[in-house]
């Protein structure tokens, strides 16, 4: 019998690779994508059954069937990615100063999160970014986010941006419209070396410059009891 070389793993049918990949965790899939072009081609499709399998495994059904939650994210991989970037339940204040951070931080590149504020703004409603060292709890009705040098926030109630306890009006236009409490609000928080916000698709100007290149997490701060805030990571974006 002639000596036989094992079949080249680069010629394998997609079906078999998908089956193998569905046994692996995301960490291993990240490695598999960089093995060769053929393997990458199996995993690059955002709706591949492999991503579907992992999305259904990790993301709660209630979130997947929610028409608003992933409204603009149609593929399974995007949904899974958004879920990974979402609020971290372990990282929040225990009293009614709710302040939660995202699970994944970013330090370089341009990243966008969509923030949907559902319910009244209350007296304090701040969105922004924080390092992992920022304070998580405090006494009294004060905007926590932006109160120290570890976080940068924008108070939606009085249109002020805050960092290290210093406030400054934002957006910088004359008489910017105050946002109506008791209504839906969509904010896009975009981060590069500068932090700027968009409301819907309206660019509101740069809020902070000279943000240090440390790992930052999306964060929010609210005092009103029934506020629901949704955070959806929209992916690294292109400036333009």
């Amino acid at each position: 019998m002639r000596p036989r070389r094992a079949v080249s793993a680069t010629r394998l049918p997609h079906e078999i690779l998908k089956r193998v990949f569905s046994y692996l965790y995301l960490r291993d899939l990240a490695a598999c994508m960089r093995v060769c072009r053929h393997w990458f081609s199996v995993l690059e499709h955002y709706c591949s059954p492999v991503w579907e399998y992992h999305t259904r495994r990790e993301v709660p059904d209630s979130a997947l069937s929610d028409p608003y939650m992933f409204g603009e994210l149609t593929s399974f991989k995007e949904k899974l990615r958004a879920f990974h970037f979402a609020w971290n339940p372990k990282d929040s204040s225990r009293n009614n100063f709710l302040r939660t951070n995202g699970k994944i931080g970013v330090s370089t590149g341009v990243h966008a999160w969509e923030i949907v504020w559902e319910g009244p703004l209350g007296t304090v409603a701040v969105i922004g970014v924080a390092t992992k060292h920022a304070a998580m709890q405090c006494h009294g009705y004060i905007p926590l986010l932006g109160s120290d040098d570890q976080s940068w926030g924008w108070n939606l109630v009085d249109n002020q941006v805050i960092h290290n306890g210093t406030m400054r009006p934002y957006p910088g236009t004359n008489n910017p419209p105050k946002y109506q409490p008791l209504s839906y609000a969509y904010y896009n928080l975009t981060l590069l070396v500068e932090l700027y916000f968009e409301k819907g698709s309206e660019f509101l100007g740069v809020a902070f410059t000279q943000i240090p290149p440390v790992k930052l997490y999306p964060a929010m701060c609210a005092v009103y009891g029934n506020t629901e805030i949704t955070l959806i990571y929209m992916g690294p974006t292109i400036v333009g």
Binding site: L26, R27, L29, A30, F40, H84, F85
Partner: peptide, 10 residues
């Protein structure tokens, strides 16, 4: 590929 999929490793 590494950059755009870094979230997979968390």
């Amino acid at each position: 590929i590494r950059r755009t999929n870094v979230w997979c490793t968390y």
